[in-house]
Structure formats: C-alpha cells, structure tokens
Computed example of a mutant assay.
Amino acid sequence: MKKYRTKYGLELIAFIFLVFASFIFVPHENAADLDLLLIPVILFFLFVFLGIKYSVDEKDVTVHSSFFSRTKIPVSAIRKIRETNNPLSSPAASLDRLEIFYNKFDSIIISPVRTEEFLKDLLAINPKIEVIRKPKRNIFSKLAL
C-alpha cells in the first residue's frame, strides 16, 4: 500500500488566514465572545486539513477526508481522471487537483502531493483509465490575442 498526503496550497491557506485575521484584527462589539468561538473553528480546520490523506493498494484508492471519514474507490471502477482547479469543497487542501470519475456518475476531487507518481500507480493497476491533462500555459499565452 502506498500512502500520499494532500498537497497544501498557498491560496487556500492564505484565504483561511485572511478570514480568521479579519475576525481577530477588525474590532467587533463582542470581541471576547467572537474569540471564544474562533478557537474551536481554527482547531476544526486544523483537524480537517491534517486528516486529509490518500492511499492506493492493489484494489482500492482510499480517501481519508478526516480522521473519522474515508471513502474507498475500487481502481477498476475508475473511468477517468482530470486535472482541475475546481474550488468546490472536497478532501483537497490545494487548488491543484485531480477529479476522479468512477462508477457511472460518481466523482471526487483530491490533491495528492506526488501527482505523477499517484497517476502512475493507478495506471499500473488499471491501464484503461483516461487521464485528461490541463493545457500548459505560460506567461506569454495571455498576451497573445
């Protein structure tokens, strides 16, 4: 069994920091009450972020969304994997993500740290998986109209 941790994206960490900072540094009427509420919320986010991990064995991909929640996906049921930056809520702590389509209508979005190795491991088990890459963009592609 190979284990992968989630990729932590600066964009999500900065967003969460800005949200929490706005509560801490912007004066509020009931600042003491708000601070008491903020501590459990911060601990909850840490709990969720630190609990995200993935594992691949010879039959399944297991997505651990937190310390208590996990989803098992049979590798044989995976139809395609698409690179995405979809910001929907998912067990992924980065916007550099993979969307896994499995069964007939199911999908899940993840962000493993070693994406290429993760894909290689899945393709070794199920070579029928279609991998859809994002087009590579460079700094000049926006300038060329």
Score class of each variant (00 low, 15 high):
68 F>Q: 02
81 I>A: 07
109 I>M: 12
94 S>W: 11
61 V>S: 03
143 L>W: 15
21 A>E: 02
130 E>N: 09
48 V>S: 04
84 T>A: 06
116 E>F: 11
32 A>Q: 11
115 T>P: 00
110 I>W: 03
41 V>L: 15
84 T>G: 02
48 V>C: 05
127 P>E: 06
141 S>Q: 08
1 M>S: 14
58 E>C: 02
60 D>T: 14
138 N>W: 09
1 M>G: 13
123 L>D: 01
58 E>D: 15
96 D>H: 13
115 T>C: 05
70 R>E: 12
84 T>N: 08
104 K>M: 08
74 P>C: 00
31 A>K: 11
99 E>S: 10
49 F>Y: 13
75 V>P: 05
35 D>W: 13
11 E>H: 12
107 S>Q: 10
135 P>V: 09
39 I>W: 03
54 Y>R: 04
86 N>E: 07
101 F>D: 05
91 P>A: 09
64 H>P: 01
125 I>S: 04
142 K>I: 13
60 D>Q: 07
126 N>V: 07
33 D>R: 13
66 S>F: 02
119 L>V: 09
15 F>V: 11
103 N>W: 00
132 I>V: 15
20 F>T: 01
121 D>C: 03
86 N>F: 08
75 V>A: 07
2 K>E: 11
145 L>K: 15
62 T>G: 08
121 D>Q: 13
120 K>M: 10
126 N>M: 09
23 F>I: 09
74 P>K: 11
33 D>C: 02
137 R>S: 11
111 S>V: 04
63 V>P: 06
106 D>C: 04
27 P>G: 06
12 L>G: 14
59 K>R: 14
99 E>Q: 15
22 S>G: 08
21 A>V: 03
130 E>S: 11
57 D>S: 03
91 P>Q: 08
88 L>Y: 10
89 S>D: 05
122 L>F: 11
19 V>A: 09
123 L>S: 10
4 Y>G: 06
142 K>Y: 14
88 L>V: 13
71 T>I: 15
91 P>K: 06
113 V>Y: 13
56 V>P: 02
135 P>G: 02
76 S>R: 11
92 A>Q: 07
73 I>W: 10
124 A>E: 14
39 I>P: 01
139 I>T: 11
93 A>S: 14
51 G>V: 00
112 P>E: 07
36 L>R: 14
38 L>Q: 00
57 D>R: 09
132 I>P: 03
87 P>K: 05
97 R>W: 05
70 R>H: 05
111 S>H: 04
101 F>G: 01
141 S>K: 10
137 R>H: 10
36 L>F: 06
99 E>K: 15
101 F>T: 03
110 I>M: 08
43 L>D: 02
97 R>Y: 03
50 L>G: 08
42 I>P: 01
73 I>D: 05
94 S>F: 12
76 S>N: 06
17 F>M: 05
14 A>P: 02
67 F>I: 12
90 S>D: 10
111 S>T: 01
78 I>G: 03
15 F>I: 11
25 F>L: 13
139 I>M: 15
82 R>W: 00
95 L>C: 04
84 T>F: 07
133 R>I: 04
107 S>D: 07
78 I>R: 05
33 D>L: 15
41 V>M: 15
137 R>E: 10
38 L>M: 07
122 L>D: 09
55 S>R: 14
9 G>A: 04
